[in-house]
Design a protein around this nucleic acid. Structure first.
Lengths: 184, 184
DNA sequence: CCGCTTGTGACACCGAGTGCCATAACGTGT
DNA sequence: ACACGTTATGGCACTCGGTGTCACAAGCGG
């Protein structure tokens, strides 16, 4: 009996050691002591093992955006929500770094990431719709800015792993989030 | 004898008519009167038929960025370069719209798009490195802003196809490109 | 003990992508 | 015209990801 979490751990270890494409599902199943068919009952695709906790991250983003205090600048709210959603639990830093590496280098993984990212964009855009703004493009732009900032921060993080992801996220979002319109 | 261009046309028509995943390479090959194996000599993957002219777009972006006049604000240069690179030839508007639709809805296509998009980011980031800026994150942020603006414009375009893509691109980039530092 | 559900995995199948090889088309040199 | 090398083609077999079907075993309530 194997839990999805353990299975994901086994798989990611193999990916990091031998490459994503080079590691077959059969390899993973054998390493976990299960059948190939059973793997696909835990995860619909090979890439999905890397997205085990993205629903949790999404939920945290949603909560963070909902916690906006009235009068608080929207950029502050969004930045806090993103940083909070992507906070790395202590001890999982190297783990997260390896995962980020796979995200940026393996095309098949990015295909799946695209679906999750679309959800991020949607959440951010929905929140931006609560901010009055003259430009009708503003909400969609905010959605893409949030995603771009998140990806940029991770990309930068990969080249400077010693830096804190929090600071990179805040820095990138500060550059990318469109300015709030003056309160008139 | 089939040219790559004709083959791409046949394939995209089938994709639009019957869906990307539902259309097999064998279907495409049969419709084009060639063998399955030969298809893979023209295009390394099924998705690649949709990226036939992305090298040209990339080249145009590169040229546009190189044409910066001294003293011109970088945001102006970047916006002009992007709009110019993605200018749709007359008569291909519907064609481009269909392609954009596939880009946003089919995961397998996005995986390939990711590679092209990384190149866009790199070009834009390289150009941003010529702009003096206090924040070391500025170049990477610009790269992601360009990509985000391009994607946001296309996403918006899909919901409002009557709008001009040029205007949407300019509008999104205006919201997303980080401000230029004052000339000191 | 029976019957039901649930987890598991073996098998067969499809489609994408690849390596290998046979063959047809074609230009060139004699 | 003939032989030659090169190139385009496509058939065949294979790997791998993913799916549907079925059989089997474990568990649990009657």
């Amino acid at each position: 009996m194997t839990s999805a979490h353990e299975l994901a751990a086994v798989a990611q270890r193999l990916f990091v050691a031998g490459g994503f494409d080079e590691t077959s599902v059969e390899d993973i199943a054998a390493a976990a002591g299960i059948g190939r068919r059973t793997f696909f009952r835990y995860f619909p695709t090979k890439a999905d093992v890397l997205f085990a906790d993205s629903p949790r991250e999404l939920a945290r983003l949603r909560e963070g955006l909902a916690e906006a205090r009235p009068g608080e600048p929207y950029r502050t709210v969004v930045t806090r929500a993103v940083v909070e959603a992507l906070r790395i639990p202590p001890g999982e830093r190297e783990w997260a770094l390896h995962r980020a590496q796979l995200f940026f280098t393996v095309p098949a993984v990015q295909a799946h990431a695209a679906r999750v990212w679309a959800e991020w964009r949607r959440l951010a855009a929905d929140h931006a719709r609560t901010v009055p703004h003259a430009d009708p493009l503003f909400p969609v732009a905010v959605g893409h800015a949030v995603l771009a900032g998140t990806l940029a921060a991770h990309e930068q993080w990969l080249t400077v792993p010693d830096e804190d992801l929090d600071r990179l996220l805040a820095g990138m979002l500060d550059l990318l989030l469109p300015p709030e319109p003056p309160p008139a």
